[in-house]
Design a protein around this nucleic acid. Structure first.
Lengths: 343, 343
DNA sequence: CTGAAAGCGCTTACAG
DNA sequence: CTGAAAGCGCTTACAG
């Protein structure tokens, strides 16, 4: 036998028609048990595998999902946020569980989004993941929607924007962690991370924080300084913040990576964490439990998130209607939010 | 126009044959510049995209690579080793750069390896990644080889086993880090991690260590305790090690995750790192720079590794012969290997 | 430079 | 329960 076996080869050997082979291999109840067994055993012997290209072409479905991770335009290619890597892991697992293959690709926002996976019939649907400037890609989402692409989005749940999104409750996360700091006696807050609609996830965290603050009777809004999700950006932002000379005893960061940068800045300036300034993060990446002091943060259940994302997308592909979903945020208390203030 | 546009629709609109459309879209020099432009502009208008299933079926090449990450059988599904996640990132990037899509999947070793990606023509080649018991999958590799699957393997470069492998020089890494510890005055060594042919990567690191030791005139072999690559496993192994009561002042760990567990054990036992016992790891994951004290480790250049893996595989697919490749290991000195011994 | 035709390897109505 | 046939949407020899 030269080259790979095809269903015709099997048909020939089994003495049946090729259509019957196809049916038998797909376990069609239409075909006689005996014939089916015979065909299947020959297929196994020949190490036959159905050609997915042919099958997908014919069925107009590839049983494949595509994961698009878009990255902060400014982040160097050195490192991807560990949080997304962890999401990637859980999405991979969830896809396999649902019987779908997973295509993975990173997108620089600058690219001419070649999210062609569905247009080219390589994937049946797309999962979109990543922080980044929401305004920049909003019209790309609209375009996807208009082309009737099946897709789900990780991030901010928002009725306004196109597509189904799954997200952790960022407002709740920001609220909870701030409330905790207030209980610990903190009074003067700063927030580091983009707090506007360009960054809806960060913005929600910020709004949650403000809510907790106003509930506690704080008069002033917290100081806020922009930063993207990198350690360096967090470091720079903290330096800028400190140079203002404003009084503060707690810094809420939009992500753990930012928080790690902030802690480095505070160490450089010889400010004690948490005695002088408490620092908290968001995401609960592995490194957060090893910082000095260990970082208090908000955990997002990536396993569950990946599952929801995949399941929703699969439902969408099957033509079912889907609702956006909001997952709870969990506070992880470690030492960086710390001790009571010494007055 | 109902449904997606096909090359026939374009042919119709452009007033040429479908074959010409196909040629024009692939920029064939055979077709008249004018015709080509016309076809391409119509295609753009219709938002036409070639169907990859049809095209792959016809060309017998999918321009897709598959990445198979196999995991430690015992590791819970909670976490993938950050080192592999980082490899995954660089492989994704490298694939895109080479013009290939990337299919990602995790394999439990227990599974009936459905590495069917190439058999089903869904991928042109496979990248294999992961620690794990080498003996367990050796025959699977042999089978891949026998089926003439194109694949590259990350891990131990070894003439014996089937397939092309790319690896960091684990022997060199183990050698360098041990040598460094010897210079710092350490005398009594232990190694934590599987040191036998089931785990060729760890074994090489171990052998590098032994070489440095014997070169320095150490008489005895280091104590060695098995552990898989998880924090918990490292913790357990260290506890076991400490319970032996053996004299030691340096623990060399086969991975950072193991080292992190070992450090936790030493803290629990109130042993000062590095004053009483130095600890070093391997992989240079992000968390390693935040441990207390920061972990001395060996860095593997994942960006380069991903590139080599992808490039070698692509060459293999093109029918070129390939050689295994060995990348250098880089020592990353932090504080856990530490201060001079106080005597 | 262009077109008509064959064929990649399947799945699935249609007819029996 | 089975077979002959059509067709998924391309690419590429072949002929002109």
């Amino acid at each position: 036998m030269k080259g790979k076996a095809t269903s015709f080869d099997i048909a020939h050997l089994a003495g049946v028609s090729q259509s019957t082979v196809s049916r038998a291999l797909r376990n069609s109840p239409l075909v006689n048990q005996e014939t089916r067994d015979k065909v299947q055993s020959i297929a196994k012997q020949l190490n036959y595998k159905v050609d997915k290209n042919a099958s997908s072409l014919r069925q107009k479905s590839s049983k494949t999902l595509a994961l698009l991770l878009f990255e902060d335009p400014t982040s160097d290619d050195s490192m991807i946020n560990p949080f997304f890597l962890s999401m990637l892991g859980s999405i991979t697992r969830a896809s396999a569980q649902e019987g779908y293959d997973l295509l993975v690709s990173f997108q620089q926002l600058s690219d001419d989004w070649h999210a062609d996976y569905e247009d080219t019939n390589k994937a049946d649907g797309i999962i979109l993941l990543g922080y980044g400037d929401y305004m920049d890609y909003q019209d790309k989402l609209a375009k996807l929607e208009q082309q009737q692409t099946h897709f789900v989005l990780w991030g901010a749940v928002d009725k306004e924007h196109p597509g189904i999104s799954i997200a952790c409750d960022n407002f709740q996360g920001g609220y909870k962690i701030t409330q905790h700091l207030i209980q610990k006696g903190r009074k003067h807050f700063a927030f580091i991370g983009g707090a506007d609609s360009h960054c809806p996830e960060f913005f929600e965290r910020y709004r949650g924080m403000c809510h907790a603050l106003s509930q506690a009777g704080a008069s002033a809004l917290p100081i806020q300084i922009d930063a993207i999700t990198t350690e360096e950006s967090g470091y720079q932002a903290a330096m800028q913040l400190l140079s203002t000379g404003q009084k503060m005893d707690a810094i809420v960061c939009a992500s753990d990576l930012i928080a790690i940068g902030v802690m480095r800045a505070l160490h450089d300036k010889q400010l004690a964490i948490p005695q002088q300034i408490a620092v908290v993060g968001y995401d609960n990446i592995l490194a957060a439990s090893f910082t000095n002091p260990p970082l208090t943060t908000v955990h997002q259940n990536t396993r569950l998130a990946g599952e929801m994302l995949v399941k929703s997308l699969v439902s969408l592909i099957k033509g079912e209607r889907q609702q956006p979903k909001l997952l709870p945020a969990e506070l992880v208390i470690r030492q960086s939010c710390g001790a009571e203030l010494k007055r």
